[in-house]
Design a binder for these strands. Structure first.
Lengths: 335, 335
DNA sequence: TTGTAAGCGTTATCAA
DNA sequence: TTGATAACGCTTACAA
């Protein structure tokens, strides 16, 4: 039922190569017939087959994205950046979600490769190191892959990251400058490097200030509100609870906030909170959240550029983007 | 450079049809050679070409999704539902984002069709009626399309919706039962039918209660926090401000909440707020948001099932899912 | 300006 | 159990 160029050719009694040319607006076919063919194609409801075309062209003009968690607003905003510049470069974008499952991530990458996408962008890889290595050796050279965030240390390749260490430092320094001395940290999953770096930044800032890092004040979260909520409850139950908390990300901060209010305390009067990411929603939190902004759109744009460069065999460099503290109303001097 | 079955055949000095069979684990090739071939394929870093396969199979085993706004958490959660059941049915999923732009939506659909996906799910279509009609006539029958939410009235086809009217009614009745009499409504974009229905539900509930609908209490939002924030400011500036507000969705409610706090008022003591969607984050809002839940995952699951049925030429029915009021802490009797 | 034919990487139908 | 060979729907030399 699907109409092909052969059908059009048959209907018009011409060769199908002419139809192909006409449809591609080649000057090598007389303007008149070209228009007739296009007209006919339209009438017959012709829809070119990208799969046939890709097969012969050996190019799909699409970039595949694998995102770790589609419900994470930080990722969603990065993706918008990717799409924007990809579309402007004439590349289509298809997205797949691994839902934080390493095996699904690997399967998704494999799938995209089988589809012969021109390049792949991993928005926060979650697969383990070993699988990752296999990814970048073996059949690797075929499809350029660039990773945004959460790059494993050993991997030297094509990656874009925020300066997480400095971000963690900025957040913590801000709290120190406000006069806080008991500053807690709710971490992300320990398997993720960005979280490790943020925590290091936190520890560095404390040490700079001559404070000792108190392990009791470092509590694991899960990068979702649930984890922040639980972690904060744990912190509030401490004999000597913190007066400020630096959270792995904004979602964690939201959960932490909830726990604080539920305990009958106020923010920032009784407790200050800092997040990370600066998702669009953060300025609408109650109170508006002080947080460390990542250059989300830029990350996406850069990643696309990197894929494109790789495709053209240009050399590319790993890239670390600066983070930036955004002070809003969730932080204040201790009571 | 990419190795194909022909390369493997050549390397092993056998015909490539045998290779093909072996790789598909056909019993029609001797176990021993089968294993040898698979071994060799692995060593040579063979990665099958989905595009070549799709061309001959005339099946891609993938469902395409077009989502209106990837940063809308409601959509993100629906998508999770889609992926879950699609993957369980052996279908891959590729996602594209129209970012609320009708032309991008249309382009995305066209693109998915050219890729010959087996079916398309529109998560909240945004294109205008006329384009939509064209979509469902002309080349329409090729690719089954089902729409989740925001279905145009004229379109009778394959769609899944929440009972928005009843949802709006439930939300408003809840406020009425608490004793509110001046209840405002912050709408979604007026171009979207789900919003129209929610508003109708709101008006019906008021009328049931013998109240007149005051146009001054109906203010447009934009289905994002920004819109809710602005609308709420407008409402608070009224000579006689409302004591309760029903918002088009949770994001709007978040913005509205912010405006209330910024004005120095409390929720729910001074003003009650109800949202719509029940995104995962809603229970972490401050205060936890009373809202109308949509069956997000079920919608996704149902949509996939519908696509699959359509593919198998079964008849399917439009489907309206019930909505459910979730009472949390953002609503209380008026002061 | 148009047509013929090869080839892209598979699957599938025949024969052998 | 294996091998030729014809599709699938397109692009693109090369001929005419």
């Amino acid at each position: 039922m699907t109409v092909s160029i052969k059908d059009i050719a048959k209907a018009m009694n011409i060769s199908y190569s002419t139809v192909s040319r006409a449809l591609n607006n080649s000057p090598r076919v007389k303007l008149e017939t070209r228009q007739q063919i296009q007209q006919m194609a339209m009438e017959m409801g012709y829809l070119p087959s990208a799969v046939a075309r890709s097969l012969v062209m050996r190019r799909t003009n699409t970039i595949g994205i694998v995102v770790t968690k589609i419900t994470d607003l930080f990722f969603a905003e990065v993706i918008q950046g990717i799409e924007e510049t990809a579309l402007n470069s004439g590349q289509n974008v298809i997205l797949t979600n691994s839902d934080g499952k390493p095996d699904r991530e690997l399967a998704a990458i494999q799938n995209l490769r089988e589809r012969r996408v021109d390049g792949i962008i991993l928005v926060a890889a979650c697969a383990d190191q070993e699988s990752k290595r296999r990814l970048f050796t073996s059949a690797s050279f075929e499809t350029p892959i660039v990773i945004i965030n959460n790059v494993h240390r050993e991997y030297i390749g094509h990656s874009i990251e925020t300066d997480n260490l400095d971000g963690g430092r900025q957040a913590t320094r801000h709290l120190l400058e406000l006069g806080h001395r008991r500053i807690a940290h709710i971490t992300g999953p320990t398997s993720e490097w960005d979280g490790v770096d943020r925590q290091s930044g936190y520890e560095q800032a404390l040490q700079e200030a001559g404070l000792v890092v108190d392990p009791a004040l470092i509590v694991p979260g899960d990068n979702r509100p649930e984890g922040g909520w639980q972690a904060m409850q744990q912190l509030l139950a401490l004999a000597q609870p913190p007066t400020a908390v630096f959270c792995y990300n904004d979602a964690t901060a939201l959960g932490a906030t909830r726990a604080v209010y539920a305990a009958g305390l106020r923010i920032p009067q009784d407790l200050s909170i800092v997040g990370f990411d600066d998702i669009d929603l953060a300025s609408f939190f109650q109170p508006p959240l002080t947080t460390v902004a990542q250059a989300k759109r830029e990350m996406g744009a850069l990643a696309v550029q990197m894929v494109l460069d790789l495709l053209n065999h240009k050399t590319v460099q790993d890239c670390v983007l600066p983070s930036r503290l955004v002070i809003r109303e969730s932080t204040a001097p201790p009571a």
